[in-house]
Design a protein around this nucleic acid. Sequence first.
DNA 1: ACCTGAACACCGTTCAAGT
DNA 2: ACCTGAACACCGTTCAAGT
Lengths: 217, 217
Amino acid sequence: MAVTAPKPRTRSRLPLSRDRIARAALDLIARKGLEGLTMRALGAKLKVEAMSLYHHVPSRDGVLDLVMDLLVAEVEIPSEGPWPDRIRKTAWSHREAALRHPHAWPLLLTRPYTTEAQLAYCDRLCALVGEAGLDPQGTALLFRLVGHYLDGALLYTALGPGRVHDPAPPPAPVDPERFPALARVGPHLRRQLADAHFEFGLERIIEACVRAAKRKA
Amino acid sequence: MAVTAPKPRTRSRLPLSRDRIARAALDLIARKGLEGLTMRALGAKLKVEAMSLYHHVPSRDGVLDLVMDLLVAEVEIPSEGPWPDRIRKTAWSHREAALRHPHAWPLLLTRPYTTEAQLAYCDRLCALVGEAGLDPQGTALLFRLVGHYLDGALLYTALGPGRVHDPAPPPAPVDPERFPALARVGPHLRRQLADAHFEFGLERIIEACVRAAKRKA
DNA sequence: ACCTGAACACCGTTCAAGT
DNA sequence: ACCTGAACACCGTTCAAGT
C-alpha cells in the first residue's frame, strides 16, 4: 500500500515554543546586547511576526525570565568534597558562565528570582553555604558576604569592554598631575588582570567564611 | 530720570542650564525610575520642549552623566584618621547615598566613568586604599576586593523592594518541601536585616585588608 | 490553536524654521 | 543664542481578523 510521504513543507518552520524563543533571545542578546532584544527583532529571528510571540510568553519580561533560566542552568554547584572547595568551584563556574554571556548576565543582578528553576538555583546556593555549619542567621551572613562579592565581581566581568557592540574604551590614560593616585593604581586595574583579582578576593572571602565557621564550632 | 523696571516676564522661566537639567533628571528618576527618565518627560518637567535640552546636553547619555556627577558628589571620603576607619566611613557614606537615590544608583555600576568629577572620585578612592601602604599591584588587589563587595552590596541596597514604583514583592513564602535550604535561610535574608549584613561583610573585608597590609609590612 | 496586520501610545534624535 | 514643531525610524502591546 502506497503511503504518501509527509508533505515537504516549502516553509519548514518549526512551531514556536518557549524553548526556541529562549534560545533565540539569548543569541540575540549575545549579538546586539540587552536593549537589542526587541520583540520585533526576536520575531524576525524566528521568522515570525512579533505578535506571535505573545502566544507563548506574556511579555518581554517573560522572555527575560526564560533567558535567566538558561543562565542559572549553566552554573555548576558541586555536591562532593569539602565545602570551602565547593564554594570555590561554584564561584569559578559562575565566572565562566558570566564570561560566556556577558551581555545577558546583568539580568541575574537586576531582576527578581521567580521561576521554579530560579528558586531551585537559590536553594542550592543556600544549601551549599549552609554546609559551613552555622545556624540560619549565620548562614545568611555568609550568604550575603559571598553573594555581594560575587555579584560585584561578575557585574564587572560582564560589563568589561572588548566585547561585541561595546563601544566603551579601555580605561583612558589619566593625567597624573590631576589624578595622581588613579594614575599610579590604574595600570594595575587592567581587565587582563581580572582573573588574578577575582582569585585574590575570592580566597579572602573563603578565608573569612572558614574563620567564621571555626569561631562558632 | 525714570528707569523702566525690568519687565516682569509673565512666564518667568529661568534659562535652561546643565545644572537645572541635572537636578530635574535626578528628581524624575527618583519618582519614575531610570526608564521613566525620557527626554520628553524631562522637558515637560522644565517647561520646555524636549528638543531644547539638546542645546545643553549631547544626548540622553549626557543627562545620565550629569546625574552620575551629582551622585559621586554626595559620597564623603574622609581624609583624617586611621585608614581602616576611613574605609569603613567611606563605605557607610556610599550606602547612605545609595539609599537616598536607589533608582539612580545603578548608573554608577553600569556606566563608564568619564567626566572630570567621576575621575576625581576614582582618584580619591585609589588614594584611600593606597593608604594601606601596599605597592600599586597590592593596592589594586585591595581596591577590587573592597570595590566588588561594595558594588554588590549597594546594588542589592538600591534594587530592594518597597520603593516607589517598585512592583517586586518581598521574597514570597517558599515551599519547604521543594526548596528546604531556601526556606530555612530565606527568613534571615529579609531586607530589614540588610544593615547588619552589610556591616558583617564590611568588617570581614576590612579585616582582610588589614591582614594583607600587615603581611607585606 | 496559532499566527497576522493594523493601530495606539510611546521612544531618541535630526533638521529646518522661528524669535 | 536659544527654543520650537514636524518628522523619522523605532519601541511594547492590544485587538480584531484571518487560517
